[in-house]
């Protein structure tokens, strides 16, 4: 169920769609791919309607679907040649294959490939038509860390070539690394739309402070710190989230109480924290 999801993706941008399982991410991009007919609303891809102008959209859009397979007895080479034949100006699939390290697997049948190899083949098929827009649904699911990093580099190169990328993920590191902007979708709505840094800044608790005080601190005073988002005390180690203002106020409080903060750490929250915060807020 998707209700009132609205966003615009700029040309040449890597746009992330982030959200918990079942939030409506895939439903949203299926409307973009023309695989699903929206009950209401308006979707345009390079100015075209993915349902009414399906073939025109298919020529400029490359898709990697979350769940799909190929004919089990089709070899990698045959799949690439077949899909290349669907487009007027296909990319050079040999270069793609080298890039995705499928060169040694060209004569292997799809059914005999490992999960990661199948995934890489689907990435190749999404790019094979030389698309202007690529929609990648769970790009790196099933890839090992090295293949994942290689894939990210490939996507950055693809974008450098002027291609617009719509990336569905629930993998924060991926979104933070690749995306220019992110729409956080939760319960079928856009919960937030910003740059990764913006999302982190916006969320309550963008800054995390943790320390072990040399003496017990009065809880009331801690909770009164400005812009405080949360306080936690685990075995004498205190973790606060808030903003820079919270940190400054905390330091003066410690000085005033003459308490030493051992192992003091101040870190920025990750996109992970921001995501949890954004999707939790919506639930409340």
């Amino acid at each position: 169920m998707v209700d009132g999801v609205s966003f615009g993706v700029e040309e040449g941008e890597i746009f992330g769609v982030l959200g918990p399982n079942g939030a409506g991410k895939t439903t949203t991009v299926e409307c973009v791919e023309g695989l699903r007919v929206p009950d209401a609303g308006r979707v345009r891809v390079t100015g075209l309607d993915p349902v009414a102008d399906h073939r025109e959209v298919a020529r400029v859009l490359g898709a990697q679907l979350q769940q799909s397979q190929l004919q089990p007895k089709l070899t990698v080479r045959e799949a690439l040649e077949l899909y290349a034949s669907f487009y007027e100006h296909p990319s050079d699939w040999k270069a793609l294959v080298e890039r995705l390290e499928l060169g040694a697997r060209l004569d292997t049948r799809f059914g005999k490939l490992s999960g990661g190899q199948q995934q890489r083949l689907f990435i190749a098929l999404a790019l094979i038509g030389g698309p202007r827009v690529v929609v990648l649904d769970e790009l790196t699911t099933g890839l090992d860390p090295r293949a994942r990093r290689d894939t990210w580099e490939l996507i950055e190169d693809v974008r450098a070539g002027g291609v617009t990328v719509l990336l569905v993920t629930h993998f924060m590191e991926e979104a933070q690394r690749l995306c220019d902007r992110i729409a956080v979708i939760d319960k079928g709505r856009v919960a937030a739309l910003d740059t990764p840094a913006g999302l982190i800044r916006r969320s309550a608790g963008g800054t995390v402070v943790s320390f072990t005080p040399s003496a017990e601190l009065p809880g009331a005073e801690l909770r009164a710190l400005p812009a405080l988002a949360s306080v936690a005390d685990r075995d004498g180690r205190i973790t606060l989230t808030g903003t820079d203002e919270t940190v400054t106020a905390l330091l003066s409080l410690l000085a005033r109480l003459r308490v030493t903060a051992h192992q003091l750490r101040v870190t920025d929250a990750t996109l992970d924290d921001a995501f949890l915060d954004l999707t939790k807020e919506d639930a409340a």
């Binding site: 791919e33 023309g34 695989l35 073939r55 298919a58 020529r59 859009l61 898709a63 679907l65 769940q67 799909s68 397979q69 190929l70 004919q71 089990p72 899909y83 669907f86 487009y87 098929l125 038509g129």
Partner: peptide, 12 residues
């Protein structure tokens, strides 16, 4: 297996 689906995102 979603083969029809995958193919329906291409111009064929």
């Amino acid at each position: 297996r979603g083969i029809l689906r995958r193919m329906s995102t291409t111009p064929v």
